[in-house]
Design a protein around this nucleic acid. Structure first.
Lengths: 207, 207
DNA sequence: GTCTATACTACGATAGAC
DNA sequence: GTCTATCGTAGTATAGAC
């Protein structure tokens, strides 16, 4: 039951924000009484933070295999580092394109605009692993970049995947599709791969 | 007074969403009575839509000169098209990095996750001009791409600027800065330019 | 542990004074 | 055009039955 309460909470908080979501509605949609939120989580804020923790856990689990693989190649030779980054980015893009990510991505994006204690938990619990792994790989793939440039590059690479969620409504409009079917998703991922490859390939030094 | 009401509304709706924001708080922060919202906008929903319209107008005005320049170069030769795109992207990045964009960007990002009638107004009133101009320029810069590829490329290029707002909290963490000063912003824009340039340069065909 | 009942606060809308 | 006053509704929290 507490599991269902968490899933419903992520959905409602993501859609309406902390203030906009109502504990009555969350409890009702979870098939229980509102007072069970008080019993299990101590109140609305406790439920909100528990929802953030649950997202962090799911995220870590979802990217777990890819992240483990990426960490193994943290000291890999350059071409292998590039390929590892492409794999990681494709995993992130696949998540962002999946309908399953809609509820928790909404929650995270909302927290990004106005971070609270919940963002701290999201970042330390799951996001930091991803970003720091990505930065390490970028440094491996592009040893010519300094620390800032490598971090900025990581942000923009990560941003390719993020855009597919954060700008979803615009993506639909620009492509002219009301839904993104498997074929479209695959073509978007292909394009993302091409972009990343070009960004990760060191510039030829002109004579 | 109705101007102040709109600005406050954008801020409150952006932060708390439609449900979470309260007309009492908006009116109070604007130095007027709640009933003036009913008088001027017919109610909470009317104020929300008026806020979206106001954002669309501001956005159009803000990017106006750059967009006008971009449209002039819609049929420009390739190198010029690339340079025009870089200019447009830099303008968008500068907006996204500016503290002034925080309130309305929050509003738009929220609408992107769960579009309502307000997104329709934002898109048709301002965003479509930007995206369609960008798509036309990308086709000019990369005639080797088909329609879908050009649109996907436009989305990801646009995404570079979007990421600076939508993932702002993560940007702070990854870079290790609590605020983005002028120097950091300039280096981020420089990096964005490098990425865009690489993406817009046609691949050499390997023998 | 899960429910119902209730206390208290804040919401949006509206009527009416000025 | 802007204010105050008020109505009905819905919010969170809490107490207490079972």
């Amino acid at each position: 039951m507490t599991q269902q309460l968490l899933l419903t909470a992520i959905d409602h908080f993501g859609k309406s924000g902390f203030d906009g979501a109502s504990t009555r509605a969350i409890a009702s949609a979870s098939g229980t009484a509102m007072s069970s939120i008080t019993y299990h989580y101590g109140g609305k804020k406790g439920l909100y933070l528990a929802a953030a923790d649950h997202i962090a856990e799911s995220l870590s689990e979802g990217l777990g295999p890819i992240l483990a693989n990426a960490r193994e190649h943290a000291a890999a030779p350059r071409n292998q580092a590039v390929e590892t980054i492409l794999l990681l980015l494709d995993g992130m893009a696949t998540m962002m394109l999946s309908p399953a990510s809609e509820p928790w991505a909404r929650f995270i994006i909302r927290e990004q605009q106005q971070p609270t204690e919940a963002f701290e938990r999201l970042y330390l619990g799951a996001m930091r692993d991803v970003t720091e792994t990505l930065v390490a790989l970028v440094k491996r793939a592009r040893p010519d970049l300094d620390d800032f440039e490598a971090r900025a590059t990581s942000i923009f690479l990560h941003g390719h995947a993020l855009t597919l969620r954060a700008g979803r409504a615009a993506v639909h409009r620009v492509l002219g599709y009301e839904t993104l079917d498997d074929d479209v998703c695959q073509r978007l991922r292909k394009r993302l791969r091409v972009h990343a490859l070009r960004i990760l390939t060191e510039e030829e030094v002109p004579s």
